[in-house]
Simulated scan of single mutants.
Amino acid sequence: MKIRIEAMQIAESFNIKKFRAEFRTEVFSGSTSEVFYALTESNRYLYIFDYGVVVFANYDPVAKSEFLNFVKNYATNPVDLNLSEEYTIESDGTLNKTIVKNNYMTVSQIDSSLLRIVMLNTGQSVALEYYEALTDDLITSSKHYILELEQKGRLSISKTNLLKYIGKVLNVKNSIVDNLYILDDPNLVWDNEELNLLNRNLKNNFDIHPRFKDLDYRLQIVEDNLTLFTDVLNVRESHRLEWIIIILIAFEIIMALFVH
């Protein structure tokens, strides 16, 4: 048997509580931040995360499209970046161990717990790809201002636009910090050494931890650039105030001489 898994970043977030209340299907497992469905009658599996990711297993294009249209009703700030990741699970009853490769794995038997672990890691990988795209955009923007400083010795960006840029950076960082739990191991691996090993192998396969460290490093670079831009802007504002004061003093002197 072969099962194809596809994870997609649909939005910045989902309202999981409202979704669970209105999606008329029995939950296999879940929490306030995620929900996993095992639709055994159709051999389909579904995993939804509150950080805006949906993971399908064994869904045909029509069923997938229908569900996406439904779940968008619970989405906040839909993402239009076409971010997705695929993974395939094959079963081979003659195997006595699990083989994990770059984009597929072979196991002796497929069950709901195993599928949940694979779908979880595939979903985490897509979420990291989304945040990587956001930080890349921020770094590209900051490079433009750094180049302007190098070539012209000044920043042409207005105070309002700089504040908007700072707000965008902080919003991305807060979103990542809020979703730090995506790196946590699920409870079901704690008492199952086989699933625990599978989870670690998948995290290594998707480079989950190194990618997150790289993401944190790049955000730090952006924050350092923000500090520089803010200092430059403060100096510019100080010079402007100094000139205003000089002009006012000069005006008062002229008025005093005129009166006398």
Rank of each mutant, 00 (worst) to 15 (best):
E12W: 09
V27D: 00
G30T: 03
D50E: 06
V53L: 10
A21D: 12
R24K: 06
Y59W: 09
S29N: 09
R20I: 12
T32V: 14
N43L: 07
F56K: 06
F14M: 11
Y37G: 07
A57F: 00
S13D: 14
F19I: 08
A38K: 01
I16L: 11
Y37R: 01
F56Y: 00
T32N: 06
F14E: 11
N43C: 10
F36E: 00
S13I: 01
F49T: 14
S33C: 12
Y37C: 01
A38F: 15
N58L: 04
F14C: 10
T32Q: 09
Y45E: 10
T25M: 07
F19S: 07
F28D: 13
A57G: 08
T25P: 04
K18N: 07
I10A: 10
I10N: 08
S13A: 14
F36D: 00
V54T: 15
F36Q: 01
A38M: 05
V53P: 10
F56P: 06
G52A: 08
A57P: 01
T40Y: 12
S42R: 05
L39V: 15
L39Y: 05
L46Y: 02
A57M: 01
Y51Q: 13
Y51W: 15
I48T: 04
N15Y: 02
I16A: 14
V35Y: 03
I48C: 12
S29A: 12
N58C: 08
S13Q: 07
N43M: 08
S42E: 06
Y45P: 02
F56V: 15
N58T: 02
S33G: 14
Y45H: 09
Y47D: 01
E22W: 00
G30S: 02
E26G: 11
L39D: 03
N43A: 13
S13F: 10
F14K: 11
K18W: 06
S31I: 14
N43K: 10
F36K: 00
Y59E: 03
Y37N: 05
E41A: 15
F28Y: 14
D50G: 04
Y37L: 02
S31W: 02
E12H: 09
E41Q: 13
L46R: 05
S42D: 07
S13W: 15
A21N: 12
T40Q: 06
G30P: 00
V53N: 11
S29G: 06
R44V: 00
Y51C: 10
V27G: 03
L39F: 10
F49Q: 09
Y47Q: 02
V54R: 02
V53R: 13
L39G: 07
V27M: 03
E34K: 11
F23G: 03
S42H: 06
L46S: 00
K17I: 14
A11Y: 08
N15W: 04
V35D: 05
F36P: 00
F14S: 07
A38I: 06
D50C: 11
R24D: 08
Y59D: 06
A11K: 12
G30N: 01
